Amino acid sequence: MNLVIREGARLAQPGEFTLRAFLNGRITLPQAEAVLDIVNAKSEQMLRLGISHLLSKNIRSVDNLQKELLEVISVLEAHIEFPEEEIEEISLGRLQEDVKKILKEIEELIEKGERVFSVKEGHKVVVAGRTNVGKSSLVNIFLEEERMITSAIQGTTRDVVCEECVIEGVFLKIVDTAGILTPKDEVEKKALRKTEQMLNEADLILLMFDASSLLEKEDKILIEKLKDRPLLGVINKVDLPLRINVEEVKRKIGDVVYISCKTGEGIDTLKQKIKNKIVLEDISSFEDAVFSLRHIQLLKKVKMNLEYSLEEIEKKAPLDKILGFLREGYFHLEEIQGKRYTEDVLNTVFSKFCIGK
């Protein structure tokens, strides 16, 4: 490699080959983004979706929006450019209806795109419970490595740690939390704040208990605090004599799973329960949806411009002012498809690729 470089060759930049394909018109910008999605796919579901996007030249739903919006723009332009021609007088009421229809479609597309993006990012599963119930041990089992430090000493975990893994084919972000309810110092205060933030963002909370001990005050506080959240009770240490009041736990939080992090008993059942509890999006029908944060951000700009145009229609503003907002929205749709782009946009997209590609 060094010899080749000395003779005048150079290392490829991140995504350079895909960038060249785009610049030479071989693929569209959404197709280039689909290549990255395929490379980074963490689950079979996302791999299939990435392939379907790669096979589509453009995003069909955005194509349809462009056609609808261009039709409205063309009517306005005709009235502005050729006022003396015998063109049917424009109806602001009809114009308002047309823009509202497109706006509704954009809102639905944003909502679809955000659902696809959330699946790509991974569902957040937070492991909670008082100290020494086996939270870090369970996370290590999910990760299939000794990622978290574990010991019999209470409070070994004093921070919040988030790791990625795939359980039963589902891409998840597993969060190990500190079992601290009464912080003693600034570090523990920060850990508690971070734990509460993670609990608020969780798609599912695994609330763990120690089967070998009675419910303690901390257990009851957590049950009361989390009972209305998406919750699954996990009773650990079933390899030891059972002392916990299982019926009380079931009565307060519902579904529970019995496991032993030491022997592995019940782990497969827990994994299946997690998959069943997570609301899996069937995104197989989302092949025509936007699928990146860039697309969603641009659609939100389109939405904002259409909302501005509706405000001007309400005020019976001059047609050229209304047209300005509609054109701006149309330009953002072209940006999604890569028909308009800047060097900064290309740098942002292709810098995420590995060397070459």
Rank of each mutant, 00 (worst) to 15 (best):
L242G: 03
K237R: 12
L232R: 01
I267N: 05
G266Y: 05
R251K: 15
K277H: 12
K262R: 13
T263Y: 03
G254N: 14
V246E: 15
G254H: 08
E248D: 14
L242D: 04
K271Q: 12
P241Q: 13
K277C: 07
K275A: 14
Q272L: 13
V257Q: 06
D268V: 11
G233P: 09
R243Q: 14
K250C: 14
E265W: 03
I259R: 06
L240D: 08
N276H: 07
I253G: 00
D268T: 12
V238H: 02
V246I: 15
K237A: 06
G266L: 11
G233I: 00
K275C: 03
I253L: 13
V249M: 11
L242I: 15
S260T: 10
L270F: 06
K250G: 06
L232Y: 07
K250Y: 04
V256W: 04
K250E: 15
Q272W: 02
N236P: 05
Q272N: 09
K273M: 12
D268E: 15
G264E: 09
K273W: 01
N245R: 14
D255F: 06
P241A: 12
V256N: 07
E265I: 10
R243S: 10
K275S: 12
L270I: 11
T269K: 14
T269F: 03
I235P: 00
K271D: 03
V234F: 07
Q272V: 12
G254T: 07
T263P: 02
E247D: 15
K252E: 15
Y258D: 02
V246A: 05
P241I: 06
G266W: 04
E265C: 01
K252Y: 09
S260M: 12
E265P: 00
R251C: 08
K237Q: 09
V246M: 14
Y258N: 10
K277W: 02
C261G: 15
E247T: 04
K271F: 06
K275E: 11
L232G: 01
V234M: 10
K250L: 08
T263G: 06
E248H: 07
T263D: 05
K252F: 06
I259V: 15
V234E: 10
I244K: 01
V234G: 06
I267R: 08
V249Y: 10
K262S: 09
G254S: 14
K250D: 06
D239L: 12
V256E: 07
V238P: 04
N236I: 02
D268F: 02
K262W: 04
V234L: 09
V257N: 01
V246T: 13
E248G: 05
R251A: 13
L232I: 09
L242W: 05
G254A: 09
K250T: 10
I235T: 00
D239H: 08
D268R: 14
I244H: 02
D255I: 01
I253Y: 03
E248S: 12
T263M: 10
T263V: 11
I253E: 00
R243K: 15
D255W: 03
Q272S: 13
I244A: 08
